[in-house]
Design a protein around this nucleic acid. Structure first.
Lengths: 195, 195
DNA sequence: TAATTCCTTGTACGGTCGTACTAGAAATCG
DNA sequence: CGATTTCTAGTACGACCGTACAAGGAATTA
């Protein structure tokens, strides 16, 4: 009765390859034929696994979002303090090997047409995650309002510095700025203001 | 001898219309035919004024960059203090009416293929401008190194917050964070650290 | 007025795009 | 083995793309 089983792993392989191609050549270059040629399969094979091109783009975006979220989250699950965690997140994101990925991420980020809801959700998740981290960091004086503001500021700063890092040729300038920011963040959290 | 004079104003009109279309529909939708249909002229007319499509895209990017730089700079030329200036820059950039423009700006920002040098230069100009403003703000204790870091941080923060503003549905959260950031920036500049 | 140059338009060509259709090879179950 | 479903590949079709070419109307100078 039942025929050949569906090979889910095969789809993941093709998806990873498609993400790699998109990160390297940009979204504008993504087509059935170009991706197929780069991967080494027939265009029809990609159509068979993804359905339509829009579905393939959504799949690429979804996987890209997963990687971005994994990059900004501490994989160990430990909470050595907010400043340290922010520092680690920066170090992970500022990895030059991730540059093509982040380029593609930001390119899609600004686009109003490419699945904006997905990225809005992604951003909200990031804010929530950091807000929780911030509240846990300063356990006693947990003011939700300032925690949200600080989480928003940390995320925005890291993101803005990453944009700078992708654009400028002076990586050292951005790197030093990031370290200085984390230093002041550490001081602020260790010595909370009186008022 | 001489024939009909070149109408430079006509090109600017078409360019403005093209920028408006690109900001509204995104770069992916820009083609001779689509822009021509939106503007109300023949595709051949656009070809005549811009030459090739790549040149038209460059013209659009150049004009977009001009608007972005004008938006982040104080048109009055006065220097009421860095924090006030940063506040004004934020107010100008966070204008909801500019949202399509900024969307397009960030969409191109991350792209590695679309004239990256232009945007690298743009960023360097912005850093230089803010650095000068910072040094002038704290005239006596002018440390170039920290001035550059602070300029980088201010730019990155504003840019990151703008990205957040374009993505999230909670504008108030971002707005409050921005105001809090400018407050602390003001305090930091008025009361420089001892060390 | 005649010549010259710019502005605008229509048409046509080669190329790439997404997608549908057909068909053979591979793998699983009765 | 035979039936059934998945995987892969080839082909073809209509649509849009950027660009080149030809031609008529508009504006300026000699």
């Amino acid at each position: 009765m039942a025929g050949r089983p569906i090979n889910h792993q095969r789809r993941q392989e093709l998806l990873d390859a498609a993400v790699g191609f998109a990160a390297e050549h940009g979204f504008a270059e993504v087509s059935w034929r170009t991706v197929a040629a780069a991967v080494g399969v027939s265009p029809t094979t990609l159509v068979h696994h993804f359905g339509t091109k829009e579905q393939m783009l959504e799949a690429i975006l979804g996987r890209l979002r997963e990687r971005m979220f994994a990059a900004t989250r501490d994989p160990s699950g430990e909470r050595p303090g907010l400043a340290a965690e922010a520092r680690a997140a920066w170090a992970r994101a500022a990895d030059p090997r991730r540059e093509p990925e982040f380029r593609l991420f930001f390119a899609v980020y600004g686009s109003a047409l490419q699945a904006p809801q997905q990225f809005a959700d992604f951003l909200d998740h990031a804010v929530t995650y950091w807000m929780v981290a911030l509240i846990e960091a300063q356990k006693d004086e947990a003011d939700p309002a300032t925690a949200v503001r600080r989480a928003t500021l940390v995320i925005a700063t890291i993101r803005g510095l990453l944009l700078d890092l992708l654009t400028t040729g002076d990586r050292a300038r951005v790197q030093e700025t990031a370290e200085a920011f984390f230093d002041t963040l550490e001081e602020t959290l260790e010595r909370p203001p009186i008022h």
